[in-house]
């Protein structure tokens, strides 16, 4: 295939050609089995990965997990695999009084992801529905250029804070596990700090799952 073929193929598959160019490429496709194979490969990749995700139990589950990997269903797959890995490596160790952020014995089976989205405004609370019967894997951004062990604190009005330390992954996210029922409905504040630096604060609105 020529460089032009590759360019047209990619543009076609990514939906970047206009109607006339798409039709011209499709006519070319009928005369070029090698191009057809590439289009088939794209379709097969889509079908295969979707099928694997479905088999793994959720549209966003890790399709690569079918071979026995530790799987936790997530709604944001782009962040999910490192989180599951981090969770499985027992990154959370409780040190606070009263409540503890701790690692439940079997996280992977039914844990629920709570993802603090750093791309949103810090003033806007991320709403999350949290069930009382499943542990929660909490993923928080650690805004720190240098490597650090982050101190993570989850505060809720009228309750003792959950506190732990965790090492962020390569994407700058730290993963901690909260025991089932440890979060109650209402406002929560996630505070993340490294060393003596100022803490970043992320408001979360916890809504009991129906």
């Amino acid at each position: 295939m020529t460089a032009l073929d590759h360019y047209l193929l990619r543009a076609y598959l990514d939906g970047e050609l206009d109607a006339a160019a798409s039709e011209a490429f499709e006519l070319l496709l009928l005369e070029r089995p090698d191009l057809a194979e590439m289009v088939d490969a794209d379709s097969a990749l889509r079908l295969g990965l979707a099928s694997a995700a479905k088999a793994a139990g959720g549209s966003a589950a890790d399709p690569a997990a079918g071979a026995g990997a530790n799987v936790v269903p997530l709604h944001r797959p782009a962040r999910w695999a490192p989180l599951a890995m981090a969770a499985s490596l027992l990154l959370a160790v409780g040190v606070g009084g009263g409540w503890l952020l701790r690692v439940p014995p079997q996280v992977a089976g039914g844990a629920q992801l709570l993802y603090v989205d750093k791309t949103r405004s810090g003033d806007a609370a991320t709403a999350a529905r949290v069930g009382a019967t499943r542990p929660v894997v909490l993923m928080v951004p650690v805004a720190q250029l240098d490597a650090c062990e982050a101190r993570i604190e989850v505060q809720q009005p009228g309750r003792a804070p959950l506190v732990t330390t965790a090492v962020p992954d390569e994407y700058g996210y730290a993963s901690v596990v909260i025991a089932a029922g440890a979060l109650q409905g209402g406002q929560a504040l996630v505070r993340v700090s490294c060393g003596d630096g100022a803490a970043a604060e992320y408001p979360i609105e916890i809504k009991p799952a129906s």
């Binding site: 097969a44 990749l45 079908l47 295969g48 990965l49 099928s51 399709p63 690569a64 797959p77 782009a78």
Partner: peptide, 26 residues
């Protein structure tokens, strides 16, 4: 097809690439 797709995903060199593919295709 599912097994081949998984293999393609597993062979990608970084988690970022895998996450990208999952986001795009899944």
């Amino acid at each position: 097809i599912r097994a081949l797709a998984r293999q393609v995903l597993a062979e990608l060199p970084t988690e970022r690439d895998r996450a990208l593919i999952r986001g795009f295709y899944v």
